[in-house]
Amino acid sequence: MKVFGIAGTSGSGKTTLTEELIRRFTEDGVRVAAVKHTHHGFDLDTPGKDSYRMREAGSTDVVLVSESRLVLMREYRAAPEPELPDVLALLSPCDVVLVEGYKRSAVPKLEVYRPSRGKPPLWPEFPDVVAVASDEPLTTPLPRLDLNDVDAIYAFIRDYLTRSPEITVPQR
């Protein structure tokens, strides 16, 4: 599988861009998986439902299965948060994985950067940033893409992935 990240500060437009990129890859017949990393706690379950009760009783993994989807909920409790390779190992076979977040992971990534938000760019600190998409002019040694031109961003990522090796994920 090929893995490419979308990184940036909160509110920069990472999710909107990732959604559009998924749509374009899918329209081109590419099997896409998405990984979203968040620093905020979340719960997809509903208190009182069977799966919630199973987790609350102490089950480490609860799998919900229906005719149209499967969801794995895993409680880490005191264990450390999984690293990106651990998450990739859980995915079904696909052609491309788009990773939103995991900015410290060693995968190539595009930074979504909006100088007007008043935060410093990531690219000077994170060597795996290979390009920057911005809605304002800026000076960077990296390729700079117009954040409003999703077709150009998609073409850049598609071409980058064409030249990149497959990532081997350890099997569980």
Rank of each mutant, 00 (worst) to 15 (best):
M1D: 00
V3N: 01
F4L: 04
G5M: 02
I6F: 05
A7Q: 01
T9L: 11
S12E: 04
S12C: 14
K14S: 07
K14P: 07
T18F: 02
E20M: 09
L21E: 05
F25P: 05
A33C: 12
A34W: 00
H37E: 05
H39F: 04
H40Q: 14
D45R: 08
P47G: 11
G48D: 11
K49V: 06
Y52G: 12
M54T: 10
M54C: 12
S59P: 04
T60S: 14
V65G: 02
L70N: 04
R74G: 11
Y76S: 13
L88G: 04
L88F: 07
S92K: 13
P93W: 02
C94P: 00
V97T: 13
G101A: 11
V107K: 00
E111D: 10
E111N: 09
V112N: 07
R114L: 10
P120A: 10
P121V: 12
P121G: 10
L122D: 05
L122N: 07
W123L: 06
W123S: 03
V129M: 05
V130M: 05
V130K: 10
V132N: 03
V132E: 02
E136Q: 14
E136T: 06
R144H: 15
D151C: 02
I153P: 03
Y154C: 06
F156L: 08
R158D: 06
D159W: 00
L161I: 03
L161H: 03
V169T: 11
